[in-house]
Design a protein around this nucleic acid. Structure first.
Length: 1025
RNA sequence: GGGUGAUUAGCUCAGUGGUAGAGCGCUUCGUUCACAUCGAAGAUGUCAGAGGUUCAAAUCCUCUAUCACCCA
């Protein structure tokens, strides 16, 4: 049956994928030769609720190329797929869905019911991304599909697995080793989701904002002389002040100020350092005083040079507060509303005053209990509170005032009276600068992140970062491209503690239980254990064997229980077991772990750790990790730290970091810009092979790729080209009885010998390129070979050979064509799996599918025939020369011309004789005749030593021909000039390597020969002209 | 402010010291039986600018300009 003219991707892709899948072609170790080396890749787990975007398509195409390449080489190959549970994103999706469906909210339905809903959603939507990856052709071992929440306590049937156990075990292990601790620290707080998030989940965006300037009056009406000097010490400005001027973008946080800081070198404020000043907001009668301190942090050249220190709501201030032992007063609740809890403002302010005066100190917990929000602002949203604070301060006259013409106001000053404007009102206005400020936004919630002092769990990364750094430094782990090493080092060398607790429900609940401390104290005592039973065992060890515990749902319930029994307790400096049998309240930490904590265990967790599985032994450490640059910190660095901390081994040998897929204008694809190209739409339109090939061809290391549909269409056409070359072969019976793969045929025809050598050379290039992760080089080499060499030349050469009467030549040409096309299919398969598999199955009868085809091994050294190569180069030059001359002289394409030649040397003569049929066919030549001199009106074509001529019997336009030749000559002479200059430079001859000099000499003499031919031809034309 | 990178044909980009390249687009011609998702031929460059190193620089170094990204 005749083949169609094009490949029907829409019809074939699902069918082919299904065939691979059914045959178990992607299973770990499929097609492995006995004793083969292993090759393993862990997929960067996509979010379970996610769908395939262009970045995934790119990332997974590259992985699939490597995996298919290794599998075809007979290596023991594993591509491990899976998804992560994406705590915050998934919880967000499910909450939104519940709201849309008019269900109860998360809090109303409670934790357990909510988690059930999340699992429902996971089971409903979790397969989406898998099916999308399959459409891309990803050859993952789906039977091993992993999930970072598998085996969790609430997991429904079919979601069993080791991951939960692994995560919990690692937490306990790291805790026991002292790498995990609980602490009250300033963290990024997302007020929408009401959880801590990582600094990596914060996007800093420049946003229009304001900078307010306020006066903090000195305590007790003190004054000082404020002096400003220029660089040379000349006094510019001097006045008596009873305040210090502070600039802030966040006036609402003034309520929690613990100090005002100036740089130690700042002479302007030296007289008042150590004094107290007043926060200019809050009820007058309880206005708080705070000290003026020195710290390196304030920049004397920025603003007034004085900075207010609000340790509980700013990261820089927090550092200053820690250094200067300044109390941190939290002002907001978990939704970033101004606090409405605790004692009255009057009481709180009094406490704070005592601290400022050094009369008392506060523990962290005590400081946290102090609510310094004035009663009238309590419960307000932080942005409303800001407005109110500004109004109050300005109303009281404590804003810094400037004339309305002050350029810092950013408004166009009104025209001066002398310029015809209204008479100037001399009234001053508050100094409020309008300027862009960097604001942190949650990357999921898109709300402004609030730095917040809260109790969280941290990994003490400084303790585990060492091996992760060493491994890359000493080359144990390779990161490509090179410069991403710098990014990696920079981040790890300045590593911050990793906040791993999240105030979410969807995730691995932290395996820590709290109970009263038998030794007394106001804080809960905690134990870390892999299970509740073990936790209770540990508690029992402290409380005694007869202790009875009651596990409560949460801290509130535990407190109630505790209080109810307090009366029965005796406190003799320590809390003691109550008289009679009373249960001791125990509750589990409600928080869950950062998703990246579990993703950090991906390499070992997916292989069954903590079990010593066969897969773990075979495939760990993994071979390659392919990932985007945007998660070097999130994931790569953490996997490195965690694998070393947990199993003391590198997670992978090589990390290949790829760049971003952008739209064709170079813009980052984003939903809000509407420039997103959906890979599935593209696959529908052009086929998966075209999309994959495009991505591979554009994957120059470390460069962003700008994707345009034209490019994809181009590679779709490439597939069609390949298809039709095969169709041609099929029509000519090339594949009749063909079984391939086979040894390279023994070729007698030069064209056959030549293409066999070219194929071997390309195979080496492709292998070298893929081996070095130069996917674009591999793709482009194949493109140029298949289209530019096989289709453009070899297929054309083969036509006269196949049509000839010489049976042996016909048979040899068929065998060669089949062999070459087989190799095209084999080498293209990792890039274009579908069309190549379809062709493979259509042509010849095969004993196995192409997915398990034997990757070619031929070497150029064995198969390149230098004589054949030289001869075919000569033939191609002749054909191109004739075609070019014909086109420029406007010889009709259909006209067969007579060709003359002079100066044909032995090689040329042999080349002509051996290839006459194909030359005359491709150049449309009637006959060749040797001659000593060309007649008038002959167009000249130099090829090697020979000069060919096309007699056009006077039709030739002498001027046009002269123009054509002169242009060629000019180009040639430019080259000759350059070569000659180099060779006549004695320094070049002395210092350049021998082979370079040889090559240059060879080039020069060849050019000179050609120059001579052209000059002769021109001279002849001049005679006519 | 700190860091990283980019600047090569109309567009998108390869090109790690030795004759400047590809794809797309453009121009002209062509439906001869693999392919019009095609074929043939052609035009197009101060390799951002200025210095330097070298026999030799798009390539290495320095500075400048512009742009992008990451981190504050």
């Amino acid at each position: 049956m005749a083949m169609d003219k094009t490949f029907d991707a829409a019809e074939a892709e699902a069918r082919l994928y299904d065939a691979w899948d059914k045959a178990g072609s992607f299973a770990a170790g499929a097609n492995a030769q006995p004793g083969a080396e292993t090759f393993s890749i862990m997929i960067p787990p996509p979010n379970v609720t996610g769908s395939l975007h262009m970045g995934h398509a790119f990332n997974n195409t590259l992985q699939d190329i490597l995996v298919r390449w290794h599998r075809m080489q007979g290596h023991d190959t594993l591509w491990q797929p899976g998804q992560d549970h994406a705590g915050i994103a998934t919880q967000m999706v499910v909450e939104r869905k519940l709201a849309q469906e008019g269900n109860q909210g998360r809090r109303e339905m409670g934790r357990e019911a909510f988690l059930e809903k999340v699992w429902d959603w996971k089971q409903e939507s979790g397969g989406t991304i898998i099916n999308q990856l399959k459409r891309l052709g990803a050859s993952c071992d789906w039977s091993r599909n992993a999930f970072t929440m598998s085996g969790a306590p609430q997991a429904p049937e079919g979601e069993d697995g080791n991951f939960h156990d692994a995560v919990i075990r690692v937490f306990v292990d790291l805790y026991d080793k002292g790498y995990i601790y609980r602490g009250k620290r300033l963290v990024n707080w997302d007020p929408h989701f009401e959880t801590a998030i990582s600094d990596l989940e914060v996007e800093n965006v420049e946003t229009p904002g304001h900078m307010w300037h306020f006066k903090y009056p000195l305590a007790g009406g003190a004054t000082y002389t404020y002096v400003e000097k220029d660089e040379d010490g000349n006094v510019l400005f001097e006045e008596e002040r009873d305040y210090i001027s502070i600039a802030t973008t966040r006036p609402e946080t003034m309520l929690g100020d613990g100090a005002v800081a100036v740089h130690p070198s700042d002479e302007r404020y030296a007289p008042i350092v150590g004094q107290l000043c007043e926060i200019p907001v809050g009820p007058k009668e309880h206005r708080r005083l705070i000290p003026i301190i020195t710290d390196e942090y304030p920049d004397p050249d920025f603003g007034s040079g004085a900075v207010k220190i609000t340790g509980a709501h700013d990261f820089n201030d927090y550092a200053v507060a820690k250094r200067g032992d300044i109390p941190c007063y939290r002002l907001m609740d978990t939704a970033a509303r101004m606090r409405d809890d605790g004692a009255s403002y009057a009481e709180a302010a009094e406490t704070a005053m005592a601290v400022a005066k050094g009369e008392r100190t506060l523990t962290e917990a005590e400081a946290d209990a102090v609510n310094l929000v004035p009663d009238d602002l309590r419960g307000l949203d932080r942005f409303e509170a800001r407005k109110a604070v500004v109004e109050q301060i300005t109303g009281e006259g404590l804003a810094v005032m400037v004339p309305p013409t002050d350029p810092r106001l950013g408004t166009k000053p009104p025209a001066a009276p002398e310029e015809g404007g209204e008479p100037r009102d001399e009234q001053l206005v508050p100094l409020v600068e309008t300027k862009p400020i960097m604001q942190p936004f949650g990357d999921r919630s898109k709300v402004v992140i609030e730095p917040m002092l809260t109790d969280q769990w941290f990994v003490d990364t400084t303790q585990i970062v060492g091996p992760a750094l060493d491994a890359v430094r000493d080359g144990t782990v390779e990161i490509l491209p090179e410069r991403d090493k710098k990014v990696y080092f920079h981040w790890l060398e300045n590593i911050e503690p990793w906040c791993i607790s999240r105030q979410l429900w969807w995730g691995h609940q932290i395996p820590v239980w709290y109970a009263p401390n038998p030794a007394g104290g106001s804080e809960w005592h905690h134990v870390c254990a892999a299970s509740e039973a073990e936790a209770l065992k540990k508690l029992r060890a402290m409380w005694g064997d007869d202790a009875e515990f009651r596990v409560t749902a949460d801290e509130t319930e535990a407190l109630e229980l505790f209080r109810a029994y307090l009366d029965n307790w005796t406190d003799e400096g320590a809390i003691r077991q109550a008289q009679g049998v009373k249960a001791i309240p125990v509750f589990r930490d409600p928080d869950v772990l950062d998703t990246w904590f579990s993703s950090g265990l991906w390499p070992i967790g997916t292989l069954g750790w903590p079990e010593e599985t066969d897969a773990l032994k075979r495939y760990f450490p993994t071979s390659v990790l392919i990932t985007g640059f945007d998660i070097i910190f999130f994931w790569v660095a953490r996997m490195m730290m965690m694998q070393y901390a947990v199993v003391g081994e590198r997670p992978f040998d090589t990390v290949y970091v790829h760049a971003l897929v952008r739209d064709e204008k170079g813009k980052k694809m984003s939903k809000s810009l509407g420039n997103v190209l959906d890979p599935l739409d593209l696959i529908d339109e052009y086929g998966a092979d075209a999309v994959r090939f495009t991505l591979a061809a554009m994957a120059a290391m470390g460069r962003d790729l700008k994707l345009s549909k034209d490019r994809i269409a181009g590679y779709r056409n490439f597939g069609t080209k390949l298809w039709n070359a095969c169709r041609f072969a099929e029509m000519n019976g090339v594949f009749e009885g063909h079984q391939g793969p086979s040894e390279a045929p023994k070729a007698t025809a030069t064209a056959n010998a030549w293409i066999i050598g070219e194929t071997a050379r390309v195979r080496e290039e492709v292998d070298a390129a893929i081996g070095a992760f130069r996917f674009n080089d591999a793709a482009n080499t194949l493109y140029a070979f298949v289209w530019g060499i096989v289709c453009d030349w070899y297929v054309e050469f083969s036509k006269p050979l196949l049509a000839g009467d010489h049976e042996a030549v016909v048979a040899e040409t068929k065998a060669t064509t089949a062999w070459v096309l087989d190799r095209c299919l084999l080498m293209l398969h990792p890039f274009m799996p579908f069309i190549t598999e379809e062709l493979w199955g259509t042509l010849g009868s095969r004993d196995k599918m192409l997915v398990h085809g034997d990757w070619p091994q031929e070497s150029a050294a064995d198969l390149v025939d230098a004589d054949a190569q030289r001869e075919m180069t000569w033939v191609i030059a002749l054909i191109e020369g004739v075609r070019s001359a014909r086109a420029q002289m406007r010889v009709p394409a259909s006209l067969k011309v007579k060709l003359l030649v002079s100066g044909l040397d032995e090689n040329g003569r042999r080349a002509w004789q051996a290839n006459e049929a194909l030359i005359t066919r491709l150049a449309r030549i009637d006959t060749l005749e040797e001659t000593d001199g060309f007649p008038k009106g002959t167009v000249t074509i130099p090829v090697g030593a020979a000069t060919f001529g096309m007699p056009l019997d006077g039709v030739v336009d002498v001027a046009a021909e002269m123009g054509r030749l002169e242009k060629q000559l000019a180009k040639l002479q430019k080259e000759i000039g350059g070569l000659d200059k180099r060779l006549s430079n004695p320094k070049f001859v002395d210092s350049a390597p021998e082979d370079v000099i040889e090559e240059t000499r060879g080039n020069l003499s060849a050019r000179r020969e050609e120059e001579h031919t052209l000059e002769t031809a021109l001279a002849r034309l001049r005679e006519i002209g």
